[in-house]
Amino acid sequence: MAEVKLYGSWSSPFSHRIEVALKLKGVEYEFISEDVHNKSPLLLKYNPVHKKIPVLVHNGKPICESLVILEYIDETWEEGPSLLPKDPYERAMVRFWAKLLDEKGLPAMLKACLRIGEEQEKAKEESTELLKFLEGTLSGNKFFGGDTIGMVDIVANFMSYWFIIWQELAGLQVLTKEKFPKLGEWMDEYLNSDIIKENLPPKDKLTEYFQARFEATAAANAAAAGGGGLPK
C-alpha cells in the first residue's frame, strides 16, 4: 500500500484543500500537524525552499505547494471524481482561476480585513472586483466545475469559510449573499457537501485563533500610526 503523509495545520485553508482532495479520491493518509511558528526538521527537510505547509509525502517523495499537490493527487489516483476536466482548454481555465484566487483573491481579501485606511479600501475594491468575476463564472452551476466539486471549488474554500470569519472579525461585509447571490448559493452547496462539512475546523475554534491574530495586527497598526513600522 502506498504511504501517504500530509504535513499541515488544522487552521490552514491550504492544508484543508489537500485533505478534501484526498478524501474525495478515497486515499488513506496520515495527517501530521505542524506548528507554523516552530516548524519541524522534517517539514524543513521536505520543503527547504518555501519552508511552508502543506507538504504531501507519497512513498517518501515530497510534493510542495497546494496547487501542485492538487494536480498531483488528481493524476496519481484515478479513483473518485476528477478534480480537473479532461479538455485541454477547460483545464487551462481551471489553472487560470486557481492561480488568480491564490495570487490576487486571497491576498486582497486578507488585506481588506487586516489593513486600515487607503490600503484597506483598495483591497476591498480588488476583492469586490474579483468576486464579481467569480459570480459571473457560475452561470447557474452548483459548482465552478459544473455539478461536482472540482479544483476551483477546492481552491476557493477560503472564501466560503475562512473569509467569512475574517470579515466578521473585521466588521466588514464584502462577501454577502445579498451582494453575490450565486456565490451565496455556491457556498451553501459546498459547505453542505458531506466530505466538506465533516472535515471543516470548528468555527468557534477558528474564530478564536484568528481573533488573536487580528488583535495583534490591530495593535501593530496602531503603533505604526504612532510612528512605528508597518506590521510584517
Rank of each mutant, 00 (worst) to 15 (best):
L101D: 07
S82A: 10
E75I: 05
V94P: 06
E90H: 03
L101C: 12
P85E: 05
P85L: 03
D102M: 04
A98P: 12
S82Q: 10
L83P: 14
L84F: 15
W77M: 14
Y72D: 05
E103T: 01
E79C: 13
S82D: 04
W77I: 07
K99H: 09
G80A: 13
T76E: 14
G105K: 00
E78V: 12
M93A: 15
E78R: 12
L83R: 13
W97H: 14
G80M: 07
A98C: 15
Y72P: 02
L84M: 14
D87Y: 00
R91Q: 11
P81N: 14
P85D: 05
L100H: 13
S82E: 09
D102S: 01
W77A: 12
D74F: 08
R91M: 06
V94C: 14
P88L: 01
D87K: 01
T76M: 10
D87E: 07
D102T: 04
E78H: 09
K104N: 08
K86N: 02
K99A: 08
K104G: 04
E79I: 08
L84P: 11
L83W: 12
P85G: 01
E103A: 00
D102P: 02
L84H: 10
R95L: 06
G105H: 02
A92W: 04
E71D: 12
Y72L: 05
A98G: 15
L101Q: 07
G105P: 02
W97M: 14
